[in-house]
Design a binder for these strands. Structure first.
Lengths: 158, 158
DNA sequence: AATGAAAGTGTTTATCC
DNA sequence: GGATAAACACTTTCATT
């Protein structure tokens, strides 16, 4: 069975209660030992190791990431910039976004604004030079993040 | 020394090369054993354990998360919705967003659009009922994500 | 799919530099 | 901050159900 079919099977059947519990636990702390996960859900360590292996193989689990606090690195400001490239500038704009390390996320979307980019900045003074640079190739519309009522969270696993 | 001062000290001094390497490794695979991290950077396991403990205590490392592929759970579509609450509806709108499990991220921003929310959907048919619900309390502007030229990545740690 | 047991690793703590 | 060593804990493999 190829990966696509396995993934499809998961979509229709969904995850069982144990897999959902494992994902919930790993979403809190992805470094929890398999042995501790096993105790939490009442199964043996080898069976949990095998379940994790399958979740990874299926593509449900894409990996395990460290979460860094941007503030602790001096990035005190987040900006969401909508970007509408000028005629003929689409590829140059995308290249600029991809190559800017302060862009931590960028989606290409439908509608008049072609890109939505999330910037991390150390101060408000950094914003203007960044926008000036883009202005050569695109129109922009910038919003500063004041708070985040919903921080990155998982979609329902059920 | 309180946490805020420690964090401040980090901001000015930055992270040393070993801490940067550890973060880079854990960003690829947050479940790597301390012993393997130690071998990668050429230090002993206890010294790496101590460094991780300090990075966590400083607030640089906020935690370790499992990354789930929404597609594998049937969420085939991502929408970015900008939301401008009607007069007097701000709190009700925010409550609606926070309590909607399909909203996986939401920022409150400056400008005319008060909120920017990221929705995961199983199909395009799910979009209209969601927007109809919000329409009672806010004006919305919706973009469908076609591709993501920059997937979530860390800011520069240097 | 899951288990228990055993062998191989990894983690933690204490002590020293 | 970092190293080593010993005690303890975890992971992996395999035979079994």
């Amino acid at each position: 069975m190829v990966a696509a079919e396995k993934s499809l099977r998961n979509k229709s059947e969904g995850l069982d209660a144990v897999d959902q519990a494992l994902i919930a636990l790993l979403s809190e702390n992805a470094r929890l030992p398999t042995a501790e996960l096993a105790r939490s859900v009442g199964l043996s360590a080898p069976s949990i190791a095998e379940r994790l292996r399958r979740l990874e193989e299926n593509g449900v689990v894409k990996g395990y990431r460290v979460e860094i606090d941007p503030k602790a690195l001096g990035y005190t400001l987040t900006a969401i910039v909508r970007i509408r490239p000028l005629p003929g500038q689409l590829h140059a704009v995308e290249k600029l976004l991809v190559e800017s390390p302060e862009v931590v996320e960028c989606d290409k979307v439908t509608g008049e604004d072609c890109y939505v980019a999330r910037y991390l900045l150390r101060s408000i003074e950094e914003l203007d030079p960044i926008l000036e640079r883009i202005a050569q190739r695109a129109q922009t519309s910038t919003s500063i993040v004041k708070t985040s009522p919903v921080k990155r969270r998982l979609p329902p696993t059920g």
